[in-house]
Design a protein around this nucleic acid. Structure first.
Lengths: 117, 117, 117, 117
DNA sequence: GTGGTCTAGACCACT
DNA sequence: GTGGTCTAGACCACC
């Protein structure tokens, strides 16, 4: 696992999990791996994973059943909203980068067309 | 100045300078700030800037006049090529990120249209 | 080890290594000594060797496996090309020197014949 | 003026002057520039030039007329001998360099033929 | 153990 | 004042 250390690790792990939820790798209602397993998977401290799960729950992305574990939300609207939000961030970052090269949104769209055939 | 510490500083500074060349902030033939001034500007070691200038020159992005300084290439084709390359990298990174969200290029274009209205 | 101080040390060490590759002392795919060992061998700073290895890699003369070491390229065409290039440099330098003595290429060849019997 | 500082400067200047004698730039019996002028020309210390002239005279390359200056020997045989000696050094250095590339004298001659048309 | 990066500070040649 | 080179010593990621 490699982290872009500019961002706190817990935020990066949150993004990874959200991405997996959004693209269906983790399905609604599916159980997330245990804190301990996730800590091993990303080679980080279990306390950091705890914080990740806590923040995900605060955002409504997951919920906890005492003694059972942590589960992906079953609220499909919430998931759609997450996807939209993450996509929006990607789009704005992309347009900002292109703008710094002096490339307009219109031209950017044309480049995407060429790139994706 | 803040660096995304995942990438070596010298690569990030190279990108900054290339971006300024591509978007016209630095014009063809214009003198780059001295190694020492650039080191102060980014709060890094002059040796690191030295490496940046050396690598830029090896890429054909700049040239050096001994005792005079380092200058932006006057080869406009080279600059166009740089812009194309940097744009291509942004596009492919963007499409990869969207793909991870389960979003196609076609849908991505639609999102850009909405975002840039 | 003695250096002709007119040329930067890193260029001279590059030449030594290339020469050993070209004449088969270092075989394709063979591991080069570590940065630290080479630094000791030539009694120079490891940073200088680092630069040597980096530039050799950029020239396609070697490649690096992270944590494993630096290895001679396995591209025999590249090696042939290096030999041709280095020989060409020697020949042109030789002919230039002879020219300064007022000796033509034809006469130079005759001198080589006599010298090598 | 640039010196390959591995060799003492006085030896390098001696070579320059001998080369000019051998290729006819300095003719037999011609007066060499004054110690002072030569010192300025090569941007070196007059004492160094004095040594150069002294050693040249000891080798029979030049002679001194008190109060008149230093002159190129008029012994054409001596000059021919110098040319032969300098050429021999170049040839042996060339063959040694080619040998280090695994190239024989025969192949070297062929390369010279190709290079000089 | 490997190479890669960075800092600090020095000296050099050329303008 | 400019970039170029070198040393010294440190820390990092990967194997």
């Amino acid at each position: 696992m490699e982290f872009h250390s500019a961002l706190p690790i817990y935020l990066q792990v949150m993004s990874f999990i959200k991405r997996d939820i959004v693209n269906g790798t983790l399905k609604p209602g599916e159980k997330l791996p245990s804190v301990r397993d996730t800590a091993i998977q990303y080679a980080i401290n279990p306390n950091t994973v705890s914080r990740v799960y806590r923040e995900l729950e605060m955002e409504g992305v997951s919920y906890t059943k005492r003694g059972m574990g942590t589960f992906v939300t079953e609220d499909e609207n919430k998931i759609s909203q997450m996807r939209a939000e993450m996509a929006k961030d990607l789009v704005s970052g992309f347009l900002e980068g292109m703008g710094q090269l002096g490339i307009t949104a219109k031209e950017a769209i044309e480049l995407i067309r060429q790139s994706s055939g």
